[in-house]
Design a binder for these strands. Structure first.
Lengths: 186, 186
DNA sequence: GTCTATAGATAGATAGAC
DNA sequence: GTCTATCTATCTATAGAC
């Protein structure tokens, strides 16, 4: 690796995935790259600068894996792939860190909106292959379910957590695939 | 207030709701109650002890508001009430803090499981009033949706966020009320 | 039993050396 | 341009005063 900045960002991502937002400190990240904390501030003057750069990388990566997961062939394959994403605790720790960082740092909030919009858009495209008239609300619903499952799965960390999450996700996809939205009761 | 412990716990909850998990420090909480940090450690010897006590209070409160929200009359009233919960950012900050704390501290994880189970159970009871055969998967689905909407709503913090979340929640309740689970496609 | 001074550890930022 | 010594702030924990 030639670019130290990339190494630092990678170390920051790993740190978030391993110990979460509370452990996102300059000394810890610097040690991971083999640098001193005071050297790290040369590349990223403030903690917020580093956080923003790491958030940007996290979002790019996450949009990539979501796109891949949605590209699966059958509906069940997609459900399984997406359930797999929610079961990856490292990713969930990063996601939660991003949410917190977005709540504190305006730059990260902007990035988080891009992530959220990008995911909803990709889910929307996928849903259109099932039911051409799928409204955006359904995409938002699916997005919210995956986020919720990931957070609950991380916090409860149960043996059958991944299996249960997959079942919920399949149920959700099942319902959405039937265009039930046409028969609203209110 | 006679019991200082309760005052401290209350201050801890407020702190989480205002500045999130990152701001959950003994000095800040102590200042809120008008005590010194070193005095706070008399009531709660370690940070983890205080965190556990605050988590316990948060869970009790959250189960209470969930129960109240689900007791609404019509389906739309419940949807609106639950959407209101997801739009309360202070509550979401506490929830996210609990998830992170559960990921770090075993005692908090146990408490979070109680919270999760309690909510799923209450949602399940509510769903049974709509469709007697509602499987637990549907309750988990609704739970995940609310958690996801809350987290996304906090992080994106958009003007129409609450309205959009309410629309998603209504769509979800609509689908679940139709017992669509009977027509699985895989 | 209630409270505090103080120690020990760790974080983030800056001025300046090479 | 690259890197580091160092300062200041802040956090948690303990020993001990009242």
């Amino acid at each position: 690796m030639q670019d130290r900045r990339q190494d630092i960002i990678k170390a920051g991502l790993e740190t978030l995935g391993e110990v979460g937002y509370a452990g996102f400190t300059q000394p810890r990240i610097a040690a991971k790259v083999g640098l001193r904390q005071s050297h790290l501030t040369y590349y990223f003057p403030t903690r917020a600068d580093l956080l923003t750069a790491v958030a940007q990388a996290a979002i790019k990566a996450q949009l990539g894996v979501v796109e891949t997961a949605l590209r699966g062939g059958s509906l069940e394959a997609v459900a399984t792939a997406v359930a797999g994403l929610t079961a990856r605790h490292e990713t969930t720790r990063i996601l939660i860190a991003l949410a917190q960082a977005a709540d504190e740092e305006p730059r990260v909030r902007t990035l988080f909106r891009q992530l959220s919009d990008g995911i909803v858009q990709r889910i929307g495209q996928f849903l259109k292959t099932l039911t051409p008239t799928a409204p955006e609300t359904n995409a938002r619903l699916l997005h919210a379910v995956t986020v919720g499952l990931a957070v609950i799965g991380l916090a409860t960390d149960r043996p059958d957590g991944a299996r249960d999450a997959a079942a919920v996700l399949k149920a959700a996809l099942n319902m959405l695939a039937h265009r039930i939205e046409k028969r609203a009761i209110f």
